[in-house]
């Protein structure tokens, strides 16, 4: 499978202490471990198990995912923006790979 590509949607700027909505989507099969291949062998589980969102190094939101999360996991959540800074998003794969994405926001 190709490298998962994260897509994040958040406003470029916000008022101080404004609560913004963040939407994230990442391409990943989220193989549940329940499916079987043509020969009847179970396909091993391989999912993204953790998602975290930080703002300037402070935790904002995180999620522990189970195999019941759909392929291409999508999250929509809110964040308070006290100052200009950087949102950092990371997804952790079962195999240990960490996919990160950063996006800046400016407080007007």
């Amino acid at each position: 499978m190709s490298t998962p590509k994260p897509r994040v949607k958040l406003p470029k700027s916000a008022a101080k202490d404004e609560i913004i909505t963040i939407k994230t989507l990442i391409s990943h099969d989220m193989e549940s471990g329940q499916r079987k291949d043509k020969d009847g062998n179970a396909i091993p589980r391989k999912i993204l198990n953790t998602f975290t969102c930080e703002f300037n190094g402070q935790a904002v939101f995180s999620c522990n995912m189970e195999p019941a999360i759909s392929a291409n996991p999508y999250f929509e959540f809110n964040a308070r923006v006290p100052e200009s800074g950087t949102f950092k998003f990371s997804w952790v794969d079962d195999d240990g790979t960490v996919i990160t994405h950063e996006q800046d926001i400016e407080v007007k």
């Binding site: 549940s32 939101f61 759909s70 959540f77 964040a79």
Partner: peptide, 28 residues
Amino acid sequence: ADGNPSPGVATFNFTPMSGTAAATTRMR
């Protein structure tokens, strides 16, 4: 989800930085 092979779906962890305690995702 009580009718799935395993009931766990997800755990959302919030902080005061979240602003509001609301989240949306997609599940099986």
